[in-house]
Design a protein around this nucleic acid. Structure first.
Lengths: 242, 242
DNA sequence: GTCATAATACTTGTATACAAGTTAAACAAG
DNA sequence: CTTGTTTAACTTGTATACAAGTATTATGAC
């Protein structure tokens, strides 16, 4: 068995994470990047030895991934589901659903602090672009949307976000790493869309919000093809064995 | 420590559940029934000895409850959050959100099979009423809504349901046990509302669906007071110790 | 009495051990 | 060669052991 697969998930995002979360994060991004094929089977013992941990954290990881619908737990072994194009579409359905819900609440609130917070995050994103740091950029991008959702103080809507977040995070991360290499110009547009989003919140303009939301989706949606290509790049020099 | 608290969660729903799921189900319904007060702390060891299992399944249970926002995992011990009135309102926000989404999909589909399935479930509900079996009734009631949501074959919407289901299930269960004792006439109305819902799906009538959905909410919403009263009933003869 | 420090009794996270069950393979009979 | 049975190697779920860290309590100096 080759252990040559490099770690894809950023180490600095795992500061005080347990071993289980680490394993889950790494497995998740590998599945989304296509390094672990849909349909393949994972066993606790196999993963435990592969990641040099005991079965306890592996069990924890598998439970997490099962809750995210990335694997299905069966009698013997967990079968990898991965992300089909349908799944990615579904994720955007849910994002649209919760972000429009959030916006309906936002228009009844004072959004001054939120706008300030979002502006700060956007500045951070610009810095990340300037220094070509895909990981930092992705982090701030995810944070941007999380900040919006958190602002309405709705614990169940936020739960939905918490479930969606890990998958989305990996998706964005892979997509952004790709763009920093090959489509650097995209970021002008991405930044502009986020500015639009902030403006929509500031002006409480529903139409503008929906517009920027859809543009934002198109951004990531359009990058799905990049994603599939990335699978080839990531798997270069890996699939020698097995 | 008193071990005198009777088990609230139906045994027959735990056929092939693991010890962890059993503990989670029982803790969940106790929290929702108010037998475990919000703010109290749970520790793994304490729960392990209380339920006569080891820490492994208890850890599993706590993870599940944390994902449902019923407890918050902290450094030392898990603090019980329970269900405030705000939380219950939030749950209905989410139900409204996903069921209207589902309906928008349904109107574009052939719903013949679904209507048949729902009719069957409704018949089951009627039998449960006839035999005054609150647990059976609750089971079929939850199944009714699950069947609708499942029918559009949208895995992420279904994930949201899966997260919501356990809490809702306990909520309905407690509410229905109450009504079978004290408000038996309510069931005529509940059955009628479900008939309306089926009719809305059959006719693909948005307005009727929204109407019956709201009525359905009012049914459970109105029973929240019952819920608080139930906490007194359940806790009769229990709080002797501690 | 008050404050600082040390000891103790908790806590969680991880590793390992064991039991029960399932799959798959080996093997024998026809 | 096919079929049926037994054996062996897996699997998961649970219990237990251990290490590292945290809160609390006890202790002692002032």
């Amino acid at each position: 068995m080759t252990d040559s697969i490099p770690y894809l998930y950023p180490d600095k995002w795992l500061n005080k994470a347990s071993a289980g979360e680490r394993v889950a994060s790494e497995l998740r991004i590998r599945m989304i990047a296509g390094l672990i094929e849909s349909g393949s089977k994972l066993s606790e013992n196999q993963l435990a030895s592969e990641f040099s941990v005991s079965r306890s954290p592996v069990r924890e990881a598998l439970k997490l991934l099962a809750a995210e619908n990335l694997i299905r737990l069966e009698r013997m072994g967990a079968v990898v589901l991965g992300l089909s194009e349908k799944e990615i579409q579904e994720i955007y359905d849910v994002r649209l659903l919760i972000e429009t819900f959030v916006f309906e609440r936002l228009v009844k609130m004072d959004t001054t602090d939120l706008v300030k917070e979002l502006s700060k995050t956007l500045e951070m994103m610009k810095i990340a672009i300037k220094y070509k740091d895909a990981d930092d950029f992705s982090f701030e991008d995810v944070l941007f949307h999380e900040t919006i959702i958190r602002s309405i103080d709705h614990s169940h809507i936020f739960m939905i976000w918490k479930n969606l977040k890990p998958t989305l995070e990996s998706l964005i991360l892979i997509s952004m790493r790709m763009r920093f290499k090959e489509k650097y110009d995209d970021f002008d547009r991405i930044v502009h869309n986020h500015e639009l989003y902030i403006e929509a919140i500031r002006r409480k303009d529903r139409d503008l919000m929906i517009e920027s939301l859809h543009k934002n989706f198109d951004d990531v949606q359009g990058s799905v093809e990049d994603l599939w290509r990335s699978q080839q790049i990531y798997s270069e020099g890996v699939e020698s064995d097995d």
